[in-house]
Computed example of a mutant assay.
Amino acid sequence: MPLRNTARTSLVDLVIEQMETLITDGEWEVGTKIPAEPVLVEQLDVGRNTVREAVRALVHTGMLEPRQGDGTYVRASSDFGAAVQRRLRRAENIEAYEVRACLERDAARYAALRRTDADLAALRDALAERGRAWDSGEVTAFIDADMRFHRAVAAAAHNSVLAELYGHLSDALRGTLEAVVPTQLPDAVRHQFDAHTAIVDAIEARDAEAAERAALTHLTEAMNALREPDTEGNAPRTGRTSGENDHA
């Protein structure tokens, strides 16, 4: 979506609206840097103060995040997502993961009842991508693929509120996954492949009970990994969520 010239009163509000649209529509993706101030001034045809006030307002909501000496980045895809992330920064990892687990379990159940053929194809593709990412040995790629898979399950539930809330929780917990997955490799994560396949199989069979059980099996293992000491004998990972320091 191209930026359009703004030539009306209440310029700050109009610039804020345009920036919000760019973020919510995915033109400015979460984690990416927005154009520099001079570029925005030129494209919007407004003054520097107007751009600064608009950016400041979106920083206040939590959608944007300034990084000293680097620029301004997209922090959340909506003010709702920003509010979720602010709350999670005050939560324990395990508390946030338990909420995510509740959503995943219900998402699997609803997906089994409501999925379309297109949903099923997306799930199979995401499952295959997860396997390829595992084979690559790249932890970041594996986490990306794993998150894509679970988002596909949430999307197949056809409940927009559930899908959005699940997405924001997953974004906020990404740092936790980055801490847990390397300590689980290779045995625990490999074992979860059967659980993920079982989720998709149950959704394909429209078996809501089986989908919920399969999701619960996977989620229980993941939460146990958070509660237990890691392989170096360190304490369980039940501290604050990584949203305090994470820029993902």
Rank of each mutant, 00 (worst) to 15 (best):
E228R: 13
T231V: 09
A205S: 10
P236G: 05
P229Y: 00
A215P: 02
N234S: 05
T231C: 07
I203V: 15
T217D: 15
E209Y: 06
A222C: 04
R206E: 14
H218C: 11
I203C: 03
D207S: 03
L216V: 05
N234C: 01
R240C: 04
T220H: 10
E209G: 10
A211V: 06
E232K: 04
R206H: 15
A208R: 10
G239P: 03
T231I: 08
D207T: 14
A210V: 11
E212L: 01
A205K: 13
G233R: 00
N234A: 03
A208C: 06
P229C: 13
D230E: 15
A210D: 09
R227H: 12
A222W: 14
A210F: 08
E209C: 03
A235D: 13
E204Y: 01
N234R: 13
T231M: 04
A222I: 10
A215S: 14
A210T: 12
G233L: 00
A211I: 07
A211H: 11
L216W: 06
T220N: 14
A222G: 07
L226Y: 12
A210N: 04
T238A: 08
E204W: 01
G233P: 02
E212R: 07
H218N: 15
P229R: 07
L219M: 12
A208D: 14
M223C: 06
T217R: 14
A205F: 05
P236R: 09
N224Y: 08
D230G: 12
T238N: 06
A235H: 08
L226H: 09
D207W: 08
N234W: 02
L216Y: 01
M223E: 14
A205R: 15
A222N: 12
D230W: 07
R227V: 04
A211L: 08
E221D: 15
R240G: 05
N234K: 05
A208V: 11
G233Y: 01
T231E: 14
R213M: 02
R213W: 00
E228L: 14
G239M: 02
R206P: 10
I203R: 02
E232T: 08
A225L: 09
R227I: 10
E221Q: 05
A225P: 11
R206N: 14
A214K: 04
E204F: 00
N234F: 01
E232F: 01
N224H: 09
P236T: 02
M223T: 06
P236Y: 09
T220G: 13
H218S: 15
D207Y: 11
A210K: 11
A222P: 11
D207F: 07
A205M: 09
A208P: 04
P236N: 08
N224T: 05
A225F: 01
I203A: 02
R227F: 01
M223Q: 09
T220P: 08
E212S: 07
E221L: 11
P229F: 06
A205H: 10
R240E: 09
A235G: 09
A214D: 06
E209N: 13
A208K: 08
R240V: 03
E221F: 02
R213E: 02
E232M: 07
G233T: 02
R227M: 08
L216C: 06
E209K: 15
E232C: 02
G239N: 03
D230K: 10
E228Q: 13
A208W: 04
A214M: 03
P236S: 09
T238S: 07
G233A: 00
A215T: 07
